[in-house]
């Protein structure tokens, strides 16, 4: 039977899924390629290939199309040889192949000035800032959020003020952070912390509050004490949702990275991008931006897959690459947290 492609809310036919995923990346890439390689699409500049008799021009110089045309017009009227040129895009829009080449070169070319970090060193520094900011935030935010969700008095005592502070943009604390914590990594970690923590407490508290109360009641009738309730029922019950929350919050932490790195002594990937822009190597700027995207995206995919392996009862029948790999490593051992085979009934 032929299934319709556009069915509201119905799951997609599985063989379309990978195609569309590829398409989702290919489409913007094609658009970028079109603007880069089709001469009559946009190309507001002219790149001089032969200055002719126009002495104020140089080879490889970029010039606005209108200026170029009027200069040539004038030259023809005056009986001089006109300049020659090809349509070009502004320097801040390099073509895909230029960025691809820069991708390779950025990791193999040493920094222009000694003492400046390589691209991978910049990225690694940024990742560390994110990690520690998110780690410290979760260290306090996760337990506090859960307690807020479980105990209304704690929620009443903490949530209003957190709600208030949450509306103050994290970068606003930049100057204070530098004054208190110096100009190196500490204030940057603090900004990530401030950007994450207050949201985190509220989100985690909300997830905790949404625990299926039936399960709490069932546990109570089975003899669970108040103390056991938290560790034996509440936390396992909300664990898959907490995990999803943490994934999303980690994404938010990333969005604070650039601001954080501007604070104090500019560092990490932000410093790299600024330096490259200063040198007018825009290819490398794109490389750095795309690398941030790739790191974020890959982290998210891996965490997503890991989640499916850790919480098979929550993600039901979805396949996990990590989970399958784990089971393949230990085929004789069925760990409780990984997908299992259901025996057929007798």
């Amino acid at each position: 039977m032929k299934t319709r492609f556009f069915r509201p809310f119905r799951p997609l036919d599985p063989h379309w899924s990978p195609l569309l995923t590829i398409g989702s990346f290919l489409l913007p890439l094609l658009l970028w390629a079109a603007f880069s390689y089709i001469p009559w699409l946009w190309h507001p500049y002219v790149k001089i290939t032969d200055p002719g008799s126009l002495t104020f021009l140089q080879k490889n110089m970029l010039m606005k199309k209108a200026d170029f045309n009027s200069a040539n017009q004038k030259a023809i009227v005056e009986g001089k040889t006109p300049a020659k040129g090809i349509p070009a895009n502004p320097i801040f829009l390099p073509a895909p192949h230029e960025v691809a080449i820069a991708f390779y070169k950025a990791f193999t070319t040493p920094p222009r000035r000694p003492g400046e970090p390589w691209l991978h060193e910049s990225l690694w520094h940024s990742i560390q800032i994110i990690f520690w900011g998110f780690f410290y935030s979760s260290l306090i935010g996760l337990p506090l959020g859960i307690l807020c969700g479980v105990y209304p008095p704690i929620a009443r005592l903490t949530e209003p003020v957190i709600d208030f502070i949450r509306y103050m943009p994290a970068p606003a604390f930049g100057a204070l952070a530098v004054a208190i914590l110096g100009i190196y990594d500490a204030p940057k970690i603090a900004i990530i912390f401030i950007g994450t923590f207050f949201q985190q407490v509220l989100v985690i508290a909300n997830t905790t509050r949404n625990v299926e109360y039936n399960l709490i009641e069932a546990a109570l009738t089975l003899g669970t004490s108040q103390r056991q309730l938290l560790s034996r029922v509440v936390i396992p019950a909300i664990a898959p949702n907490l995990y999803q929350d943490m994934r999303i919050l980690l994404g938010w932490a990333w969005t604070y990275l650039i601001v954080a790195e501007y604070i104090g002594a500019s560092s990490g990937i932000t410093f790299f991008i600024n330096q490259q822009a200063k040198y007018r190597i825009y290819d490398n700027v794109y490389v750095a931006i795309i690398m941030i995207g790739i790191i974020g995206f890959v982290t998210d995919r891996v965490l997503d897959d890991l989640g499916k392996a850790l919480f098979p009862w929550h993600f039901r029948d979805s396949r996990s690459i990590i989970g399958s790999f784990y089971n393949w490593l230990k085929p004789n051992y069925v760990p409780r947290n990984f997908p299992i085979r259901v025996p057929s009934s007798k």
Binding site: N214, L215, E217, A218, A219, T221, L222, G223, W313
Partner: peptide
């Protein structure tokens, strides 16, 4: 625990 309860919606622990 000396009063066992069975609910209409099962209330099994999914994890």
């Amino acid at each position: 625990p000396e009063r066992g309860m069975v609910f209409q919606n099962y209330s099994l622990f999914p994890w």
